[in-house]
Design a protein around this nucleic acid. Structure first.
Lengths: 156, 156
DNA sequence: ATAAATGCAAAGGGTTTGCAAAGGC
DNA sequence: GCCTTTGCAAACCCTTTGCATTTAT
């Protein structure tokens, strides 16, 4: 997993901004920036508690704020009643497929969509800022078996 | 405003299900089903308090649940940290433009989008249920003047 | 008269904040 | 040593729930 470099980038960001590089911040960055999944703040705290360090939720939220400000993490709200976070990779923009059974998130790209949203915004007199497209459905795994519910929907 | 008929439909729904037709329920239905805007539960309570009846938020939420169950109201979550509700008109499906300054919501239709989401879901092994597309931007009014913030974003 | 709805206040989940104790610099 | 972070608990926002009172039927 080549995310240790990204964690180091975060450490550099902290130093450049005169902010202490703490073990907690690095641990949280490690989990968030190294995950393939779209984690919630609670997911991060659980992961850390399960593995080694027991870090307070408040610290997780505060570090997430730093990671988002640094540009290394992206916030997502899929209308589930809580937020998820994903590492900001080089991919410029992508859409999301969300499994309503197990909470797994898949990503896909569509170049036409961005153009379409700009045109629609223009046609309605809006200055477009960004867009959100989520396709809700049941993933392949959950279609064939009883799934492991990872980040369940609070509002199904 | 031809929504009195819809309120009557709700009254009929209540009677058919043996549920009391109360003044509060009718007042809440009147506000929600008659609004051009995408209201939050709090918007409804404020509107009612401003106009005439002071109805508890709990009652608003409970009536909203009934309205959604009856099929006359649709729930939306645009990732603002609260939910909005719109009357279920005859329009089968549409997307939303959300002004991040004043919270106004515009609607638009795109026939290609639904097909596209089905194809994407298939390609990823998902059984598609529904989708959500929100374009965030600044509406025409807010681009030229200091706006009246109606349903402000809690997470800008 | 019966059964359900209302209103209020308390509880609930996700998130933020205040403050004493701990830890980077 | 100074200043920030941490952790915990309390506060906060939106939403739901429990319970005594009111109301529709």
């Amino acid at each position: 997993m080549g995310h240790d470099g990204v964690v180091e980038t975060f450490a550099t960001y902290l130093r450049e901004h005169g902010l202490p590089v703490t073990a907690q911040r690095l641990a949280i960055a490690h989990v968030l920036l190294g995950s393939e999944r779209h984690l919630s703040a609670d997911d991060v705290a659980s992961e850390l508690a399960r593995a080694h360090s027991r870090i307070g939720l408040a610290t997780v939220y505060r570090t997430i704020e730093l990671l988002v400000k640094s540009g290394l993490l992206v916030e997502r709200d899929f209308g589930e009643g809580f937020r998820r976070f994903e590492p900001a990779r080089d991919i410029p923009h992508h859409e999301h497929l969300l499994c309503t059974v197990c909470g797994t998130v898949h990503e896909f790209r569509d170049e036409r969509l961005e153009r379409m949203t700009t045109l629609v915004a223009e046609a309605n007199g809006f200055a477009r800022q960004r867009h959100l497209l989520v396709i809700y459905g049941v993933c392949a795994d959950c279609q064939r078996a009883a799934p492991i519910r990872r980040s369940p929907l609070t509002r199904p």
